[in-house]
Design a protein around this nucleic acid. Structure first.
Lengths: 161, 161
DNA sequence: AATATCGTTCAATTTAAAATGAACAATAAC
DNA sequence: GTTATTGTTCATTTTAAATTGAACGATATT
């Protein structure tokens, strides 16, 4: 009976994290996994996740992989020595830092590269027509990109306290 | 020939914005529309968007609707009086503000509501077992939420200069 | 060395999201 | 009042992304 309540509560928390990660554009399963780890009193193995969330081994494996990449999860000790057990990292600084590093920065970098290409195209284009206009718009984009590069470290710094 | 180059350039810019909005979890068509408006020297009508992007009227209509909702687009004058014409808003402050207001805040609000539900469940749960642990974890979540509520206005303020 | 356990990978499937386009309402033009 | 034009809506289709699960390699156990 007490367990019954526990499971319901657990399910609600898992759902909560589902919604959370969807907002960040991450797969639902990643939210489920992190959510369950977050609300578990002891570390869980891949098999635990499969059983308690009812997801496939593949999903659990890939989800854990992503969470490890984000630094959102850390290994821990568990009863079965053959298995790996996991715990959540709960410091916002670390979570946001990982997300920025893995999900945001790469996009910014490839964006900057594409922007450089566009600038080159305009530079090599003959004068007149829209050349000046295009130039100005690309400068606008550069200003955005610059702001982003400045604001992200500030954000991380702010969250680290 | 000059036009040829223009179209290629335009297409690259449109693609650039596609990638950009995908990162934000918005539909590709929204990026295409905003991108084309961004790189057009004169305001465009829904029909222009349909023709030059090769998307359906439905997509263009819905995309414009979303962009208007985000405050990323404004109406403008055009030759045809029957039609509505659109221009992009290019102030980062406005764009980010709109995004936060329309896409981020609603999620935070519903998240806070769910969090309040979870707190209530724990409060009404009998002592012992994991009650204390659950309580701590939910407090962690509240701290995150609080941080988010503080950081968003700071972000907007920072971008507004 | 044979067998069992654990975790990963990836082709196939399923699911969720976005795009389409026909029907429709609203307005303008004739 | 009839016909054209413009834009929206929404049921259907398409596309992209996530999930599955069988096959596999790696490692431990007997």
């Amino acid at each position: 009976m007490e367990e019954e309540i526990d499971y319901q509560f657990e399910a609600r928390v898992v759902e909560f994290f589902c919604d959370g990660v969807r907002m960040l554009g991450l797969p639902k399963s990643v939210g489920e996994i992190y959510g369950l780890l977050f609300i578990s009193q002891s570390p869980l193995s891949l098999d635990d996740l499969v059983n308690r969330l009812g997801i496939s081994k593949g999903s659990a494996s890939q989800g854990l992989k992503m969470l490890r990449g984000l630094g959102a999860v850390k290994e821990a000790e568990g009863d079965n020595l053959r298995r790996s057990y996991f715990q959540p990292n709960v410091e916002l600084k670390r979570l946001v830092g990982g997300f920025i590093k893995e999900q945001v920065r790469p996009h910014l970098v490839s964006g900057d590269e594409k922007l450089a290409d566009l600038k080159r195209i305009v530079r090599e284009t003959p004068d007149g027509e829209g050349r000046q206009f295009y130039h100005e718009r690309l400068e606008q984009l550069e200003r955005w990109s610059k702001k982003a590069r400045v604001v992200l470290p500030l954000l991380q710094r702010f969250l680290g306290r």
